[in-house]
């Protein structure tokens, strides 16, 4: 599906100068900690793939700057929610299961659409808030 607003100039993605490129073991792929899938680093639509396209699980390796590999945690990060940028890009908010740190990453073109929709619909599963906001407050 083509990008919906091709006229808008997007900020170029940050240059990536870390990891994987040196031809070591697992130079061009990583294995998901959630579902053990071998994930290639080349992703359609993004140069910074950090989560598994099937189960959306990530690993806590970066500290403050994306790609700095400075975190000592290495815990599993699970997709917590979806945020939307002003230009309409979806971002996955990950939360580390061992230290509760949050991080955001753009979705890739091959991410599991069903998992993304389940994540997007999670706030609406429980009707209490929707009922309170839309039926009783007005």
């Amino acid at each position: 599906m083509p990008r919906r607003k091709p006229s808008q100039q997007r900020r170029p993605q940050r240059h990536k100068d870390v990891l994987h490129g040196s031809g070591r073991h697992r130079g061009h792929d990583f294995r998901c900690v959630g579902c053990r899938l071998d994930v290639p680093l080349d992703a359609p639509g993004t140069a910074h793939r950090n989560h598994c396209p099937t189960c959306l699980t990530s690993l806590h390796v970066d500290h403050r700057v994306p790609g700095d590999r400075a975190s000592d945690c290495h815990g599993r990060m699970e997709a917590l929610s979806l945020a939307v940028r002003p230009d309409g890009e979806w971002m996955i908010i990950h939360q580390c299961l061992s230290c509760d740190e949050l991080s955001a990453n753009r979705i890739a073109g091959d991410d599991n659409a069903l998992a993304l929709i389940r994540l997007a619909l999670r706030p609406l599963q429980d009707g209490r808030v929707a009922h309170g906001a839309l039926l009783t407050a007005l």
Partner: peptide, 16 residues
């Protein structure tokens, strides 16, 4: 920026 849901069903607000 976003709403997260805990296992208990409570909403959390994600700030950036």
């Amino acid at each position: 920026i976003s709403i997260a849901v805990l296992r208990t069903g409570d909403w959390m607000l994600i700030h950036r």
